[in-house]
Computed example of a mutant assay.
Amino acid sequence: MNQNNYQYWNTFYLVDNTIKENDQYDNWLNSYKAYFKSGISVLDLGCGTGINLPALLGFGANVVASDFSEAAIKIIKDSFSEERLKLLCFDMKDRFPFIDNTFDIIVADLSLHYFGNEEMQHIVGELKRVLKQNGKLIARVHSINQVRPSESIEIEPGLYYCDGCCRKYFTKEEIQTLFSCWTMISLKEKNIHRYGQEKKVFEFSATKISK
């Protein structure tokens, strides 16, 4: 089964030019405001059109916003002129283009659920590598209880293919297993609104600990 995520996401952002206007920030990061100090380094991983950037910059962070889609990065470039913001386009399936222990915090908002188990193992390793000791990951991913499109095809447990894109629907236990070498701070299922629809997600935060 061929999957072209690059084409999928560039088309997604180029065709639907109302995404940025209609997809509003839901204040979810306010619950973690105590983690953010002025001048800390933050990676907004899979940032899309930058929905979380006003909050992150408002917290005083120096932010690297990254996404697989050049179209998404261009939307941000045309919308923000903040000196504390850097933009980068790369594929999470590759080695992250940062040296070890670069970031204090990584935010991954609905960006980690597009990969199979083997790819996720690699990505979790990269998250840990580029985070500083005691650095924090704040993330949201699809819940297994999220309704899936009827035409979806399951290609491995919990990973479904539909309309040119794979999506993973996590159980709570899978998240705990993936991050078993981290200190899990919080993990809860929530209902949110994104891209014009209701979504059921797991929201969690975890701290990098030594090997």
Rank of each mutant, 00 (worst) to 15 (best):
I185F: 06
I123Y: 02
C89I: 15
A65D: 04
L137Y: 03
K93V: 03
L187N: 10
H122N: 06
F80C: 10
I144K: 12
I185N: 03
L57K: 05
G164E: 03
I153W: 08
N101H: 06
E118T: 06
E173C: 07
N134Y: 14
R95Q: 15
L87P: 13
L112K: 08
S152T: 05
Q133R: 03
E118R: 01
N191S: 13
F115C: 06
I73Y: 03
E70S: 10
L178Q: 13
K190W: 11
S66I: 02
K77Y: 09
G196W: 11
G135W: 07
I123C: 04
I123D: 00
G116V: 07
T177V: 13
C162A: 05
F98I: 09
R167C: 07
V141W: 03
F115A: 06
V147R: 15
L88K: 11
I75H: 02
W182T: 11
H113Q: 09
A65E: 08
L137S: 02
Q121M: 14
M120L: 00
V124P: 08
C181F: 04
E119P: 11
G60S: 00
S152D: 14
I144Y: 03
D67P: 02
V124E: 12
I73W: 02
K136L: 12
I175H: 10
I76E: 01
I73T: 11
P97H: 10
K188Y: 10
L187P: 13
G158H: 07
Y114P: 06
S111Y: 04
I155H: 08
C166N: 14
Y161P: 13
S79R: 15
V124S: 07
V63K: 05
I153T: 12
F98P: 04
K190F: 09
E174S: 01
V107L: 15
K132L: 11
E83K: 04
R148W: 13
E173R: 09
S66C: 09
M184W: 10
M184P: 04
I153R: 13
S143D: 06
R148N: 10
Q133T: 12
S111A: 10
L127K: 02
A108T: 00
P97R: 13
N134C: 06
E154K: 14
Y160H: 01
D109F: 08
E83F: 03
V107M: 11
Y160K: 01
V63I: 14
S180L: 11
E198N: 13
Y114K: 11
D91T: 13
F98M: 01
H113G: 07
T171Q: 03
K86Q: 12
I106V: 01
F115W: 02
Q146V: 14
L56P: 09
K168A: 04
C181L: 05
F115T: 05
I106R: 02
K190Y: 10
D78C: 08
E118D: 14
D104W: 08
R95K: 06
P157W: 04
Y161D: 12
D67V: 09
K128G: 03
P149F: 06
F96V: 06
P157E: 11
Y114I: 03
E189P: 15
S79I: 01
S143E: 05
E174V: 12
R148G: 07
